[in-house]
Amino acid sequence: MKKFIFSLIVFAVVILFIGSCSQIDDSPKALVNLVLVDTPAKWDSVLVEIEGVDVEVLLEGRETGSQTFYLEYKTGDKKIRVSDLVAGRALIIGRDELPVGKIIGLKVRMGSRHSLYQEKKGYNMPLKKPEDPFVTLETALDLQAGVAFDIILDLDLESSILQTSTDPLSFELDPVFTVILGAGAGEVKGVISPATLKPAIYLIQGIDSISTQVNTSGSYLFRVPKGTYSLYFDPKDSTYNSQRITNVQVDSASITQLELVTFTKKQ
């Protein structure tokens, strides 16, 4: 009798195991990496809190309807020193395998703790619309099975930080992101001299432009889609002349290395 009961238990366990295996999701997936970079501002240091990103996917085989996947920034402290993400430095703020289909939108979930530092003095930055912490971004990316995709979120601090008063000095944050699809992005990089300058560097295409600054060694980097651009270098110092480079060709998945840009003193 005991052997019979034992046999029934083993049989039940096997059935449960087979049933659980049949529930494993073996549908094709694509790996998505959400990568944060910074288009820095003039401030010494800027910290921004990001909770994660909602990714809206139109699943393959569905003509209507979509599904949203939350890619959380999984860390104890979600405050990010985004002003350090320059000249090639980047931070993955979300990663997951998603079903095959088409990404049709992103929503960045902002936290509530944002601040900047200038000359060793700190300033809190509330969101411009604290009741709506989501930043909606349009994008379109086809996900293919077994392929990893990088989605670069370029946070433009120069445009995102708003000065609300001068006495006392206060600020608020209205996040402005540019979405760059890593698979089709190219890089523009170079170095300025003297490295002690902190110029604003603008990459321009038509009426659109994005800006960045240099790191401590004078290096700068842009990640942008394929196209033809010009660069304008504003020295932010009235004793130096501005500089310009035109007809810069950027190709997909390639690096365009520019010659050294040397700022000259005004006569």
Score class of each variant (00 low, 15 high):
Asp156Ile: 01
Leu157Ser: 05
Leu157Trp: 00
Leu157Val: 06
Leu157Asn: 03
Leu157Ala: 05
Leu157Lys: 01
Glu158His: 11
Ser159His: 11
Ser160Lys: 03
Ser160Leu: 14
Ser160Asn: 15
Ser160Tyr: 05
Ile161His: 07
Leu162Pro: 02
Leu162Gly: 00
Gln163Val: 00
Gln163Cys: 02
Gln163Met: 12
Gln163His: 06
Thr164Gln: 14
Ser165Glu: 14
Thr166Ala: 12
Thr166His: 08
Asp167His: 00
Asp167Ser: 13
Asp167Phe: 08
Pro168Gly: 12
Pro168Thr: 04
Leu169Glu: 08
Leu169Phe: 05
Leu169Ile: 12
Leu169Lys: 06
Leu169Met: 07
Leu169Asn: 06
Ser170Asn: 15
Phe171Gly: 08
Phe171Ala: 09
Phe171Gln: 12
Glu172Asn: 15
Glu172Met: 13
Glu172Gly: 01
Leu173Ile: 04
Leu173Ala: 04
Asp174His: 15
Asp174Tyr: 14
Pro175Met: 07
Pro175Ala: 13
Pro175His: 10
Val176Ala: 14
Val176Gln: 15
Phe177Met: 01
Phe177Ser: 11
Phe177Arg: 01
Val179Tyr: 04
Val179Leu: 07
Val179Trp: 02
Val179Met: 02
Val179Pro: 07
Val179His: 05
Ile180Lys: 11
Ile180Cys: 11
Ile180Ala: 10
Leu181Ile: 13
Leu181Glu: 08
Gly182Ser: 05
Gly182Leu: 04
Gly182Pro: 00
Ala183Gly: 14
Ala183Phe: 12
Gly184Cys: 00
Gly184His: 13
Ala185Ser: 15
Ala185Thr: 13
Ala185His: 15
Gly186Val: 08
Gly186His: 12
Gly186Pro: 15
Gly186Asn: 14
Glu187Ser: 13
Glu187Thr: 11
Glu187Asn: 04
Val188Glu: 02
Val188Trp: 08
Val191Phe: 02
Val191Tyr: 01
Val191Asp: 08
Ile192Thr: 11
Ser193Pro: 01
Pro194Cys: 13
Pro194Met: 15
Pro194Gly: 14
Ala195Arg: 02
Ala195Thr: 00
Ala195Asn: 01
Thr196Ala: 09
Thr196Ile: 03
Leu197Met: 04
Leu197Cys: 05
Leu197Trp: 10
Lys198Met: 03
Lys198Trp: 00
Lys198Gly: 04
Lys198Ser: 14
Pro199Met: 10
Pro199Val: 03
Pro199Ser: 12
Pro199Leu: 03
Ala200Met: 10
